[in-house]
Simulated assay, not measured.
Amino acid sequence: MIKNKKHFMMNQDYDYQSDSLLLYITDDYEYKKSVRLEDDIILDFDKNDVPVALELLNASNILNVKKSSLIQPVSLNMDIGVGKDIIKLEATFSVLIHQKQIPKSLNWQISNDINLNANEATFATA
């Protein structure tokens, strides 16, 4: 367990035409690299190996909602842990559907074969 877990607020941009949802921290950071958790799920890291952005390509398919549901901001609570051997992401998105917030939970895990430094971070949208 990491002693200094980082906490970040996130902004978001949704591109209806390309169906891509970008969630990124509000703090300034220096980009280092991107890691694909799956073909359409990309996690960005800063120069200190701290996760700073999540991009969902084909977001409506990943979240199993209509594209029009993503025009309104989604709320997000997400934990990302980077260990010696794995990168793990646990996220709960709340999407407004028929005037109700509907939770969508997503979990991904991949090998840390790029040797990112161990850390943990929690993210939420404003």
Rank of each mutant, 00 (worst) to 15 (best):
M1S: 13
I2N: 15
K6Y: 14
H7P: 01
H7C: 03
H7V: 11
H7W: 00
M10V: 08
N11M: 14
Y14S: 07
Y16A: 13
S18P: 06
D19Y: 00
D19R: 05
S20F: 03
L21Y: 04
L22N: 15
L22R: 11
Y24F: 15
D27L: 12
D28P: 04
Y29K: 02
K33F: 00
S34V: 04
S34K: 02
L37G: 08
L37D: 04
E38W: 00
D40I: 09
D40L: 10
I42E: 08
L43I: 13
D44C: 00
D46V: 01
D46F: 02
D46C: 05
N48E: 12
N48L: 10
V50D: 08
V50L: 15
P51S: 07
V52H: 03
V52I: 07
A53Y: 01
E55K: 02
E55R: 08
L57G: 10
A59T: 03
A59E: 01
I62Y: 01
N64P: 11
K66P: 01
K66L: 07
S68N: 09
S69C: 13
L70K: 12
L70V: 02
I71H: 05
Q72P: 05
P73C: 03
P73S: 13
V74S: 04
V74K: 03
V74Q: 04
L76F: 10
L76H: 12
N77R: 04
M78F: 02
D79H: 05
D79C: 05
I80F: 00
G83E: 06
G83D: 05
G83P: 00
I86T: 09
I87D: 02
I87W: 04
K88E: 12
L89T: 02
E90W: 12
E90R: 10
T92S: 02
F93S: 06
S94A: 14
I97F: 15
I97Y: 12
Q99L: 14
K100I: 13
Q101G: 14
I102S: 08
S105D: 12
L106Q: 05
L106T: 01
L106R: 05
Q109Y: 03
S111E: 14
S111M: 13
N112K: 02
L116E: 00
N117Y: 03
A118S: 06
A118F: 07
A118Y: 05
N119H: 12
N119Q: 08
A121R: 11
A124T: 15
T125H: 09
T125Y: 06
T125D: 01
A126P: 14
